[in-house]
Simulated scan of single mutants.
Amino acid sequence: MSETKQTCTCGQCFEGWLSPRMKELLDYSTELRYGLAKSLLHTQDGVGEDVTSVLPIDYTHIDNSVYYLPLEVRHKIGPSTQSGDAVYRGYIAVFEAIKDLLSEERKDFPTVATVSAKLAELRDSEDASLKPIAVFLDNGGKAEYALDCIVDRAREELTPLGRLYDAETQYIDAVLDGEENHEKCANDLDFGLVREKLGLSVESLGALPDDDEDSRDPVSDDEE
């Protein structure tokens, strides 16, 4: 038995590392990130062009998922850049692609390789609504930026390991309340293992404005 499989204590982890509770966290984080961005786009699209040409939405100051993009890509998003809107829409299309992959009722979570392959397929589509994906990729965008955001926001917002976790919500304990056959597992909070298996860097590359290295909780024993 491999070392990875030995970390599973519930007997239900996908390939011995992705517990049902962790899977639920990542699924929910994906929904949150995509839902916020989609609402911003609906707001932008619902305002007349005569107004948005003067007061366009600056996504970089509203959607914190943008801070998981490297500076050279992030600087291409915003009202001051000609392609900024298309780059942002392409980035959000990556979250949508991940969400669509999850709708296939898969037991795993899409890896960097899986999402990258999906984006390559979508960028060649004749569907005009998918053109922003090509713009995003051509401007330095990659699948791992969205996946990094999803995983890191899940840790920071939805579990006791994070600075933004609402203790009253107790998400990790309540998310599967009433569900059968979903026991707690040693892998439930092992984000380090998840990052490795998804093909992400050991540490998140996200740099939110109020983030600094000292403000983050230290890596737990489960994440090493």
Rank of each mutant, 00 (worst) to 15 (best):
M1E: 13
E3F: 10
T7S: 12
C8P: 02
T9D: 05
T9V: 07
G11R: 13
Q12I: 03
Q12R: 15
C13A: 13
F14M: 07
F14R: 13
W17L: 06
S19D: 07
K23P: 00
E24P: 00
L25I: 03
S29A: 14
T30F: 02
E31Q: 14
L32V: 09
R33D: 00
G35E: 09
G35Y: 09
G35A: 14
K38Y: 06
S39P: 00
L40D: 00
T43Y: 06
G46C: 02
G46S: 14
V47G: 09
E49C: 05
V51M: 10
T52C: 05
V54L: 11
L55A: 02
I57Y: 03
I57A: 01
D58Q: 04
T60Y: 03
T60H: 01
H61L: 03
I62F: 04
Y67H: 15
Y67L: 05
Y68Q: 03
L69T: 05
L69S: 03
L69P: 01
P70E: 06
L71A: 11
L71G: 07
V73Q: 14
H75I: 00
K76Y: 02
I77G: 01
I77E: 07
P79G: 04
T81V: 03
G84W: 01
G84I: 08
Y88V: 05
Y88L: 00
R89A: 03
Y91S: 08
Y91H: 12
A93Y: 10
A93W: 05
F95V: 02
E96R: 15
I98S: 08
D100K: 15
L101Y: 04
L102N: 14
L102A: 10
E104G: 05
E104I: 12
E105G: 04
F109V: 13
V112H: 06
V112N: 12
V112E: 07
T114Q: 15
S116C: 04
A117E: 10
A117C: 00
A117W: 07
K118A: 04
K118V: 02
K118R: 12
L119H: 10
L119Q: 09
L119R: 08
A120P: 00
A120Q: 10
R123P: 01
A128G: 05
A128F: 09
I133W: 03
V135F: 02
F136C: 01
N139Q: 14
N139R: 12
E144R: 15
A146F: 08
C149A: 15
C149F: 05
R153N: 09
E156T: 14
L164I: 02
L164R: 14
D166P: 00
E168C: 11
Y171C: 08
I172K: 05
A174N: 14
V175M: 14
L176M: 11
L176H: 11
D177R: 15
E179S: 15
N181L: 10
H182T: 15
H182P: 00
K184L: 04
K184W: 01
C185G: 09
C185M: 11
A186D: 04
D188F: 08
D190N: 15
G192M: 09
G192C: 06
E196K: 13
E196T: 13
K197T: 03
K197Y: 02
G199L: 10
V202N: 11
E203I: 11
L205K: 12
D211A: 11
E213N: 12
D214W: 07
V219E: 12
D221Q: 10
